[in-house]
Each structure stands twice: as C-alpha cells, then as structure tokens.
Design a protein around this nucleic acid. Structure first.
Lengths: 202, 202
DNA sequence: TAAGGTTGACAACGAACGTAGTCAATTGAG
DNA sequence: CTCAATTGACTACGTTCGTTGTCAACCTTA
C-alpha cells in the first residue's frame, strides 16, 4: 500500500495514474465517437491506449463507468459552452437562440466525436440507453426554459420533445455528411427551428 | 435433395419451411422490438422460437439477413399503411397530413414493437446502422413530396430532416411512456408539426 | 547494493457468440 | 414393412468478451 506519493521518472504516482485515466478517457471518446458504439470494450480501449487491462481497473471499476465518465465529460463541456454563450449574448430570444446554436455548431465542428457522443451514443450504446440517458439534455433544458411562458404543460412538453428531435436529427445528418449545407445555413435554419417552436401553439 | 414436395403431417415441406421462416421472423420482431437490439442473436432467436439453429440457416444465411428481413417487413407494412391512408383521404394538405399521422399512430399503438423497430432499430442495431438505414424513410418521402413546391433544395432538405427528427422523437417518447399525453393530442400535435414545417421558410 | 514500489506481457476462467457438423429418432410413401 | 426424408438434441471450433491473477522485469530510494 503506497502511503506517500513517491516520485518516479520525474512524476508522482498520482500524476501517472491521472495521466493514464486521461488517456483512457480520451481513448473512450475516440471509440465512442467513431460510431462503433459496441466496439468500446475494455480490451479495445486498452489496445488503443496501449495500456494493460490492469490500468483500466485501476481507474474504473466497470466498462460502464468508463462509458458514463466519457459521456459525462462531454455533456458537462457542452453544457458549459451553451450556458456561457447564452449568458454572454444579447437579451432577446433571437440572440439567445442564435448564441446557443452557434456554440453547439462550433463544438461539434471542432470535435465531431463529441457531437456523435452527444447525439448518438445515448441511443446507440447499451450502457447509456439502459439508463435512459437523454439526448441533448442541455438543449432540452434551454428549450423548456424558453417555452416556459406559453401554452399549457402538455403542449410545452411535446414541443420541446419535437424541437430536440429536430435539432438532433439535423445535427446528426450534418455530421454524417448526409446534409450537405454550409455552416451558416445550418446555423440559420436551426435558429429558425428554435424560434419557430413558439409559433406552433396556434 | 428433395425434388418433389412430399406431404408430411398434413402439410408439405415447403409449407413447414415457410411456417418456420414466419416463426423466426416473428421472433426477430419480438426481440428487435423489445429494446434489446443487441440481444437478437442467432442462438437467442432459436431459443425463443424453440427451433434449432439448423432451421435458422435453412431460412437465412446470416444474422444480418434476419434483421434486415424483419426491418424490411415492418417498413413495407408501414409504407403501405401510410400510402393507403393518404390515398383514401381528402385532397387538402391538412387532410393528407392528418391521415398519415393517424395511420402511423394506429400502427405503433396496435403493435409498439413495430414502432420501436421503425424508430429505434436503425440507430440501435449494428446491422441496420452500418448500412445507413434511414429512420422513418416513408415519412421522409411523404414529407419531401409535400414540401416539393416551396423554397429551394437545401431548405427543403433541412426542413424534411428536422421534421422527421421531430416526429421520430415525439413518437419515441410516446412509446417509451416519457410523453404522457392522450392519443388525440399526440395526433393533433404531429399534424401541426407537419403543417407547420411549411411555415418555416420565412 | 538491497529492497520494494511499479510496470508490462500474458495466461486463465467462464460466458456468449456465429457457424457447421453428427447421429439417433421419428414419420409418411411405396 | 422398409426406406428415405425429415426432425431434434447435441457437440465442436474458433472468436471475443469481462475480469482476475501471475510473474518477470524495471526503477527509485534508503
């Protein structure tokens, strides 16, 4: 039992453990974000990371724990990005929507793997889908907030669900290359979707 | 090599082969439509159907072939239902949309497994997602047709993608029980979604 | 240098999978 | 009754998985 952090090759044990954890998380993101959701197995992650299974179980108790940690990290980052963008935007609903959409597009263009994790993994990966993880939860939250004043409860719920699905599908198609369109048009259209949601309540 | 169809237990060989194929297809639908998309394996299907693996490979060359056959059957049925409903409806866009939505709701309420296969399996199941199977392809077709006259190509494509995603998410939430709402309100809201799509082109 | 923390390569267990094959028992046709 | 078609139970091979354990090689500190 290593009670004190002995230094090793210039770094302490905890440092190296943390570095390996980081490496495993990155590898997990790589595998989870490359479509092959079922291919993120303990062995595959270790092969990719050039680490032994031992170091996997040193940092995570389960395969589940890694998957959840990867997803959680991406969601947290996206949430921060969205909230930050909305806070530092203009006050009107149009500016808020545009800031949020723009931040999200920037995020998934900067690292499409994160986009795929956010959009696909909750449905694709058994670990995530078994726990009923939401798609685009942070978008859903923003959407619900914006719709808060109009219509009744059920209508709001349906509109929010529809809007999240619409955004998710559009982004997914964009990431998959199925939707060949410029980034600006994508952004503009998604903003229109967000703003148009309110108009649905006839 | 059985050249002629000898009768056996009152039925011919081909009849029994067909019956087994049907049984395998039904079992495949059951497993694929119960969420456990990865759990539809050759052995699992045979266990469930109380058939030996031999009869699996008598009717299908692959696990893939069964999955694709199940999906194809459900899609074909849904397509027929939708086209039929639209054809025998009133002429206006509102009546057409309402007929289509109503037919689809009836379909997935009559057998939720089919709904889940249509909505989830293309994303969930490796066999289906690997081949890039579309979600709700028949809905997408109808949608594209209805949007044909308005806006330009790219806008139509994005609107269709958004609408399909919105409908899929709403139906999925409804099937999952997440969206606690009456069947009538669900239908009405989806009709509004379809009709509202046109209004998006500002 | 000796000791012990640390690392890597790898074996091993039980399970599930796809796929193919064997073989005895059953059943209808001639 | 006899024979061949048909059926079902079963075995088998090779692969991958999650998880745990072993053991020799390393590196730092005392």
């Amino acid at each position: 039992m290593p009670e004190a952090a002995r230094t090793w090759a210039g770094t302490t044990l905890d440092d190296r453990r943390a570095a390996r954890r980081r490496l495993l998380l990155d590898t997990g993101l790589e595998l989870l974000g490359t479509g092959s959701a079922a291919a993120v197995s303990v062995r595959a992650v270790c092969r990719h990371a050039r680490l032994t299974e031992r170091y996997f179980y040193e940092n995570f108790t389960d395969r589940d724990e890694l998957v959840l940690a990867v997803y959680d990290e991406v969601v947290t980052e996206a949430h921060r990005a969205l909230v930050g963008a909305v806070e530092s935007s203009g006050p009107g609903p149009r500016q808020r929507a545009e800031a949020a959409v723009r931040a999200f597009v920037a995020l998934i263009l900067d690292d499409p793997r994160k986009g795929r994790v956010l959009l696909l993994s909750p449905v694709t990966d058994p670990t995530l889908s078994r726990r009923g993880v939401e798609r685009l939860p942070m978008f859903a939250a923003l959407v619900r907030e914006q719709l808060a004043d109009r219509a009744d409860e059920e209508d709001r719920e349906m509109t929010a669900t529809a809007l999240v699905g619409a955004l998710a599908n559009v982004f997914s198609a964009y990431l998959a290359g199925t939707l060949a369109v410029s980034r600006e048009r994508l952004t503009a259209h998604c903003v229109r979707l967000v703003l148009g949601a309110n108009a649905l309540h006839s």
